[in-house]
Design a protein around this nucleic acid. Structure first.
Lengths: 210, 210
DNA sequence: TAGGTTATGTAACCAATGTTACTGTACACT
DNA sequence: AGTGTACAGTAACATTGGTTACATAACCTA
């Protein structure tokens, strides 16, 4: 665990804090597709991402989903943090987007570390800052963009996150993430293909030039 | 300033912190409609709300606006906080929704107080928590609700914030807040009037029963 | 290879929202 | 009282996105 921690957080945290994390944290490997957090759950520990990516989703009362953003290596989930601090239930669902490695830190340490370590405070604040900005971007896209622009953004982001020109998703899955319908997504994807930006195949999409 | 501070924050903060706030803070009265923060500005001080309400807005590149949420007494602006901590520019606009009293605290104190006062840390974290949840609600409404539901929610919230059954806004102003158009809002308001929920007048709307 | 299953393509239609254009009306100012 | 301006009502139309329905294609398994 020590090596993985150092790789991502070595320069960020004091040695003393790094030692503490190794002492109280648990290393965890999560395969793609596994759910980490469900809406309504109480949170007992906080994830520090080592590698991979986690997809954060919102769901409404009718079960309609919407992708909020991705967490990547070196990041943590402020939502979870936020829940930890206030002893409240999770407002979001978290699912591993790729195979992911992370360290789980027990909530009890949060308060203590925030008082004790400047680097931890900075990390927490930066994390909140990033998450607020991610949510603003999400709001921008649903409020100000049309579905074709949102789809394009989705493909770009997905390709970046997975470091891959191939996107392994069905049209239906994309429709869920964007809170749209399969037919609409197929329609728009076809247009993108006609524009030469992508190539459509069964179960995957190849990015040509976005 | 001391009395106003105690009224809202007296039980929240330690005496020592309250004294510090009085020492370094500046009391400010802001009339309705006055802009407090503009997008792109650097933030030099943080507002603690004593009374009134502040409207937080997002704007896209074409100048289209969207109301994000309101700040009320006893709250602070995490967005501003977030900017302060990371020395970055404001992503939002803040406008006084009603006549507002607040205390401005210089940014330099943030880091210091977060290390020193547990109550301040709690306040800051709770503030972030609330703001994240407000943004999630905003996302819910634009992603999952139709315009008629959003309008109804808007009228309810506005009436609550202003503690008044009369809403002093033109249809155009409401349209800006909801990022819609005047004609659409007029149409939907007329329906609400036909349902007996509101009464329409020039420059104001009377809430009957929402 | 046949038959079942899942993913995709596409047309036709519908609903919600946005746009344009014009009308009427309240209010302020002179 | 007369006039100009801002606000509101409304019809007609355009656009976007969602829905239904069905056809076709890819893949999987026996």
């Amino acid at each position: 665990m020590k090596e993985e921690l150092n790789e991502n957080y070595g320069t960020l945290f004091e040695q003393e804090l790094l030692d503490e994390i190794v002492r109280v944290g648990t290393f965890k490997e999560v395969p793609e597709g596994i759910k980490l957090i469900e809406i309504g759950e109480y949170i007992k520990s906080m994830p520090l991402l080592i590698s991979g990516a986690i997809k954060i989703l919102r769901e409404d009362k009718d079960g309609d989903e919407l992708l909020l953003y991705y967490l990547e290596k070196g990041e943590t989930c402020s939502m979870t943090l936020s829940c930890c601090m206030s002893q409240s239930i999770s407002e979001i669902r978290a699912v591993a987007e790729t195979d992911t490695k992370l360290i789980m830190v027990p909530v009890q340490k949060m308060e203590e570390w925030t008082a004790k370590y400047k680097s931890w405070r900075n990390f927490v604040f930066e994390s909140y800052h990033n998450r607020l900005n991610e949510l603003l971007s999400t709001i921008d896209s649903i409020a100000f963009q049309n579905m074709d622009e949102r789809l394009l953004g989705y493909l770009k982001e997905k390709s970046r996150i997975n470091e891959n020109k191939i996107i392994h998703n069905t049209h239906q899955e994309i429709a869920y993430d964007l809170h749209s319908s399969r037919v609409v997504i197929s329609r728009l994807l076809k247009k993108l293909e006609e524009m030469g930006k992508i190539e459509l195949h069964r179960n995957f999409i190849k990015i040509i030039q976005l």
